[in-house]
Amino acid sequence: MAKLTPRMKNWLEGLGAHIGTATKKGFPTTIVVESAKVEGDNMVKFQLSNAQVEQIKQNISENPQVAIGPAGLGCIRAAYQFKGIAKLEGNILEVEVREIYCTKPGPEAALRLDTLPYENIIKFESTRWRDTGPPK
């Protein structure tokens, strides 16, 4: 099971995310949410506007697979991608993260992190980045 690190949590909760959704035939739609709440090891919740719910509810209904990239400067400073299964509960989009990837440009792009032992993910982060979250 995927387990988010404190650094991942800090970036998602601090700046939100770009959330990729798609129809079951692969027509993509991306929404952007400015904050998030991480609960437990791998649950990420986003508060959506009514317009955002309208934009993606059909996609989530027919195809609950989503991809999440940290927003703002997290786009490059927190080079992660989270993939999971989403459901809408009213205006809350709940995503159970099942896969975590490094998206740092170069030879480590697409490296899967959630299959590593948790302590190795922490070690990987500490050797690739200096921060533990977005600037205050």
Binding site: H18, G20, K24, P28, L73, I76, K83
Partner: peptide
């Protein structure tokens, strides 16, 4: 600019990555 690019497999699995 820094952007996210979302693509998708033919069977509907999205991929969203930051691009510089």
């Amino acid at each position: 600019a820094v952007v996210h690019l979302t693509t998708c497999s033919a069977d509907g699995k999205p991929n969203t990555v930051g691009e510089r």
